[in-house]
Design a protein around this nucleic acid. Structure first.
Lengths: 342, 342
DNA sequence: AATCGCCCTCAAACCGCTTTGGATGCCGCA
DNA sequence: TGCGGCATCCAAAGCGGTTTGAGGGCGATT
């Protein structure tokens, strides 16, 4: 059932039917209702492919998921972000198209998306320092929103980010207030922008209290359970071991906890731990009482908001880039306590 | 730059250029090369929207991600599956379009995808018992592949699944061979098809050795750390506690491990644990030596294969449904050992 | 030299919708 | 009565490709 058939069934022209269905004013209300009813009755849905060609809009946004060719990790945060963004898209009748590409083919992918015209904009995931994608997208003129920011990039661009620096600064201060002095950082990979900002916040907080950051207490690796476990285990084995940890994610934190317990120590009493909690749906940080004290910011909500921003950018290209900085909340759980006296 | 422009630049008709680019035989090789070169030089990419309209094919497949309206959980397995499927799609120039929908709107979503014509087929995720989606898709005539199976469905359909029953049967036998008699099952939600099959395997193995399954040792809940922790904690607190656990996932298993350690017991010595390992990229089960003894099956590989199957189904609709059952491997880690003497 | 056949190329229809630019009819008003 | 104006509706031209059916050119065959 297509427009033409529907129109002839109604004894109207395709033009009028199209206008009736799309709410144009130059059609009699009675006619419109007749058309609407017939469309519903015959289960008519306009062919998306034709609409796209006729209007020139793709009614779709792209998410390019880079898969690191070296360590083949798919960011676990991704599923929840997508879920959030997806809600926005379905509300607005947009499609979400995913491209999973090796990270050395990202450039081609973006160019392709633009010139083949199958998306109206893209969301950029996991920005790195000096991320080249921003200049690239700027060049090819494809609307985009970055989830995160790219330190070192001078071009103005739209982004939505969590205040990672502030979050880790506050977390560090919280530990300092509890009397901790040897605080370890189990960070993500520090070519990722968010990881750099987190370290900055951590270092700033220490420095503000006159404590020199100790390289032996700072590690940087993938945010996996194993990596967290190993980093914590090594630090706990050292002569002057930390009394507190700052971990980059829930999963890292679980590794840290394992190392602590394996060392015969008790998390929360002997050793304090604060994690960053993305509030992933399958990785809840406890229920009424959080397991981990955490800086929390819902990545799903971030997905919703980033998608909103992108759709707005697509609809109103004029006003220029938008930015939005979300604050993480510091929630107190069972994993922190006063620094034990030596 | 579009076909017409390119054609006029070359002094050829659009027809010839189109044929040259698409490898049709009725065009001179010299001409073809000239066209190819010009296309590259002018960075010509055919407009996807036009191709889709002209050919009637969407060159896209849909993944409908149901988001449970009650417990808003996004399956963590999902990201890796998508990554695998995505590799197949990009190799074949297909797009992947995701629809994130509340699970009570799934039917409308599938109907919409079909009648609006924006996908050529779909992958069905997370089948439940008597899953109504299979009959629905059958009805509306949209090619599909189910990741998993739907017990109780009589229609023939295409699926790709892991032999969950066998995997859990083998795991149970392995524990029995180690002398364990009180083996607990920390299962996923048992309206999910895979969870039912796993329980069947577990029960079968016990029964085969003349052990009656003990309801007190069988739990079923979401596959989260918390749920695993709580189930294990409750069972460990009982008078006759289990000496071994079978956990539904890596994450559940981490909860089980926490409960074990919190009870002052040692995993692998006092209590054995076997998990099912989906081989998620961000959730590796150790490195050289696995942390957990596990039934392992890569969900990413499953994504690749399911996508292959679907594309084949789309290209060759004739032969009818395809099925493929993958066997999980049993890998031995540090979390299992002989049943301690009482 | 005429005919056949093959190779290459082209004009035009088509995919299903949107949108521009009229056309038609009816009303009110001067 | 005549005309402008408004409310409705329609024909046709795109959008940018693919594909059918036909034609021109040329060497080979008779």
């Amino acid at each position: 059932m297509n427009l033409k058939e529907l129109a002839s069934k109604l004894g109207l022209s395709p033009t009028t039917v199209s206008r009736a269905l799309n709410g144009y004013p130059e059609v009699n209300e009675a006619t419109r209702e007749r058309v609407m009813a017939a469309a519903k009755r015959h289960n008519y849905h306009p062919n998306t492919r034709a609409i796209r060609l006729a209007t020139g809009r793709a009614m779709a946004v792209g998410h390019v998921i880079p898969v690191a060719t070296r360590h083949e990790i798919v960011n676990p945060v991704f599923a929840d972000f997508i879920a959030g963004a997806g809600e926005t898209y379905s509300r607005n009748d947009y499609d979400m198209v995913l491209s999973v590409v090796p990270d050395d083919q990202e450039e081609d992918t973006y160019r392709g998306l633009k010139s083949k015209g199958n998306v109206d904009g893209v969301i950029v995931h996991a920005p790195k320092m000096h991320d080249p994608r921003i200049a690239l997208l700027h060049d090819i003129g494809l609307p985009f929103v970055v989830h995160g920011r790219a330190t070192g990039t001078t071009l103005p661009y739209s982004w939505l980010d969590v205040n990672n620096r502030r979050a880790f600064q506050r977390a560090t201060e919280f530990l300092l207030d509890l009397g901790h002095r040897r605080i370890a950082l189990v960070n993500g990979l520090e070519f990722m922008d968010f990881a750099i900002r987190r370290r900055t916040g951590y270092v700033d907080a220490l420095s503000a209290r006159g404590i020199a950051p100790d390289p032996a207490l700072m590690s940087s690796d993938e945010m996996t359970e194993i990596a967290g476990y190993r980093a914590a285990k090594a630090m706990l084995a050292a002569r002057a071991r930390p009394t507190a940890f700052l971990a980059a994610s829930m999963i890292s934190g679980m590794g840290v906890r394992r190392a602590i317990e394996e060392a015969g120590l008790s998390m929360g009493r002997d050793i304090s731990v604060i994690i960053h909690d993305d509030d992933l749906s399958y990785m809840k940080n406890g229920e009424d009482v959080p397991i981990f004290t955490a800086t929390r910011s819902s990545v799903r909500e971030a997905g919703r908001l980033a998608a909103d921003m992108l759709l707005d950018l697509i609809a109103h290209p004029g006003p220029g880039p938008q930015q939005r900085l979300l604050e993480a909340e510091l929630i107190i759980g069972q994993s922190t306590g006063p620094c034990p006296k030596p």
